[in-house]
Amino acid sequence: MTAPTAPLILFDDDHYMYVLKDRAFAEAWWEAPDEFAVGFDALARPLSMTGEPLDVRLALAGEESDEAELRRLVAEHYRDHLRGQVPPRATALADFVAALPREGC
């Protein structure tokens, strides 16, 4: 299986979204795998997280894109956590992902 394509879009157990610049940054940023709910790479492929607290690892969980689910979760994040703001409206996936707010950049 190939490596995830950056950036990585991760959702915690409260479905708060984090857009992290690459896999190394994401693995250093994230503290514990039990706080991870779901994640995607820039191609909307699902991610899995394993490891121990302060030592997590991310990998692709599959090669098939789930763009609809990524867009749904992003919309949910904006509705629940960024009230008054609207999610990106780009139709192309690459443009949509590029317009997401990033952490640590």
Score class of each variant (00 low, 15 high):
G39D: 07
E63N: 10
E31W: 11
M1V: 12
A26L: 04
Q85Y: 11
L93T: 03
P33R: 12
K21Y: 00
G62H: 01
A6T: 06
D13N: 13
D13H: 13
V38M: 02
F40L: 03
E63H: 07
R71M: 14
F36M: 09
R89W: 14
L60E: 09
Q85L: 12
G51E: 03
D14F: 14
D34F: 14
F25N: 10
V38S: 00
M1D: 13
E63K: 07
L20I: 15
E35M: 07
H81M: 11
A44L: 08
L8A: 08
W29K: 08
S65T: 09
V56F: 08
V97Y: 12
P88C: 06
M17I: 11
L60C: 11
W29Y: 15
H77R: 08
P7K: 02
L43G: 08
G62T: 06
Y18N: 07
R23Q: 12
G84K: 10
A90V: 09
H81E: 11
L10C: 12
S65W: 14
R79Y: 09
E52Y: 01
D95Q: 06
T91H: 13
D66A: 15
L20F: 09
A3Y: 00
V19S: 10
L73W: 12
D14L: 10
L70W: 10
S65I: 07
A94D: 14
A59C: 13
V86E: 15
A99K: 08
G62R: 01
L58G: 08
G51M: 02
C105M: 03
M1F: 07
E76N: 05
W30Y: 05
A3N: 04
V86G: 06
L54D: 05
R83E: 11
S48F: 04
S65K: 02
F11M: 01
D95C: 00
E31N: 00
D80L: 14
E52W: 04
R23H: 02
P4R: 08
D80P: 02
L70V: 09
Y18E: 04
D41G: 02
D41P: 03
V86Y: 15
A68M: 13
P53A: 15
C105N: 02
W29S: 03
A59I: 05
E76D: 13
A75G: 09
Y16L: 05
L73Y: 08
M17A: 03
P33G: 11
D66K: 13
W30E: 01
V56M: 05
V74A: 02
L100H: 03
R79G: 04
A24Y: 03
A42L: 06
L20P: 00
A94I: 11
S48E: 10
R72W: 11
A26W: 01
V86C: 06
L82W: 07
Y78I: 01
D41I: 12
R57D: 14
